[in-house]
Design a binder for these strands. Structure first.
Lengths: 272, 272
DNA sequence: GTCTATATTGGGATAGAC
DNA sequence: GTCTATCCCAATATAGAC
């Protein structure tokens, strides 16, 4: 057996149980029957093997989903349900991968990884959007992003039960239940107001950072008015071509005195 | 300001950004303006402060939700929706806590922590179960655990949007949307087969009786702390092989003085 | 490709003075 | 309660022999 593959299999196992940071290279190597030093002949770092696992999984996933062929003559709903069932079965079969992803994740160290994940999530959202529109047509359109959100939320919650609690669940029944729940919501759509309306309008990351900070000041600041004024001046100044560095710094430092704003401020600082 | 509280605030901040394992005791201490050594005068370990944060949050949450007084004359559905709205607002305000929980988690190292988490999850499940039964009555009973799962899944997914993506969402609208979705599912219940049927089998009826009693004490007891202590001792004593009959009886009688616990106590007594 | 040995760092926790 | 100094271990990564 390929030593490289063997290392990856053991790695995903340990990562799923202990998390990335709590797993040592040594125990991965030992499980594969080689020394720690030899590990580095196969992968250049611990993060390296993690990235390789991610890549391989998504390659396998897309290949599987594209090669699956269903019997013809299915209704849109039946087709949707079959695909859901396939996804459920696949997720349960790869439960270690699922656990690994939901455990400790080396994303903060590596910005490339965060972008990759963001892309994958967005791709899934778009996929679900079109699947649901095919099943429910125009009735679902006004609140399609809410429907996608509900769909993903329900699915994820059941995955947690399936995987963490290791409960014996009838997967066929589960797929039917989820689709039936969506049916119910869509058929009540006349009584339902959408929530995620302005979803598609993409705000720039900088705009988003501003919004977050403003919200946080409004919600938690002990000196709401002062902090809001400082924020507005900061935003104005940063928009200028010849922004005064000392003023930006001074306003940032001033706002930092409010502990609850730390997260938003550090996000904002990345744009300077 | 209380140094201990200050340390916890900084800890939750770093944990939410970097994760538990990637945050050092030193940087928490430094942020609070003390040395690493002094940290250990306040908490006995890094895990210790994490546990304290968890406990405090849960206590605050249950206290907030229980002490909130809504205008009288609300229907069960309106009451449920108001509580949900309160929870949404509370979650957004405590977004760092939410992030911390969904980052790297020190659960594997410490068995006590896993038990604590299990307890907190179970308490929430039981709470939701009874809330939903109050709103929807017998129609929800056959698939109540599925309804709870759907409810928690939808909620969680919107929390992700609210917190990670920081989208401006109308929270009032969101609460109404979630409840309306549940309405839709319940009103279609004749077409829906339950999935989580054997659910109760994992929790013993005794465990369930304990949970109900504990919840009831937390929610209604006039002498919360005393009754909780009595409850814990009772549970402990009853678990022993050579449980002292007089002590069990004494504690039961003591708790019976609180009228609101009568139902839960008589359920519990069946197991003696 | 694999080994052993080693450099180096980071960080949890403790000791003992003040 | 707080400090500094220290212990001690675990873990990433490398060096160099075979």
């Amino acid at each position: 057996m390929d030593k490289r593959q063997e290392l990856m299999n053991h790695a995903v196992h340990f990562f799923s149980i202990k998390g990335f940071h709590q797993t040592s290279v040594q125990e991965i190597a030992k499980a594969a029957g080689i020394s720690k030093g030899a590990f580095y002949k196969h992968f250049d770092s611990k993060e390296g093997i993690f990235v390789e696992i991610l890549k391989q999984y998504h390659e396998d996933l897309t290949r599987d989903l594209n090669s699956a062929d269903f019997e013809p003559g299915l209704t849109n709903r039946e087709f949707f349900k079959k695909k859901l069932l396939l996804e459920i079965e696949r997720t349960v079969m790869n439960k270690e991968f699922f656990l690994m992803v939901f455990k400790d994740f080396p994303a903060n160290d590596n910005e490339l990884m965060q972008n990759l994940l963001q892309e994958l999530r967005m791709a899934q959202l778009v996929l679900h959007k079109y699947s649901l529109l095919e099943v429910y047509g125009d009735r679902a359109k006004p609140f399609i992003y809410d429907l996608v959100t509900v769909y993903e939320g329900i699915k994820k919650e059941y995955y947690f039960y399936l995987i963490f609690e290791n409960r014996p669940i009838n997967k066929e029944l589960l797929a039917e239940f989820i689709v039936a729940s969506l049916d119910a919501i869509v058929s009540h759509s006349e009584k339902i107001q959408p929530v995620l309306t302005g979803f598609t309008s993409t705000i720039s990351p900088l705009e988003e950072a501003y919004n977050q900070l403003e919200e946080q000041i409004k919600q938690t600041s002990s000196q709401r008015e002062k902090h809001l004024s400082a924020f507005l001046m900061l935003k104005e100044e940063m928009a200028k071509q010849d922004a005064k560095a000392f003023l930006v710094e001074a306003l940032l430092d001033y706002l930092k005195q409010e502990e609850s704003l730390a997260t938003e401020l550090s996000t904002l600082e990345k744009f300077i």
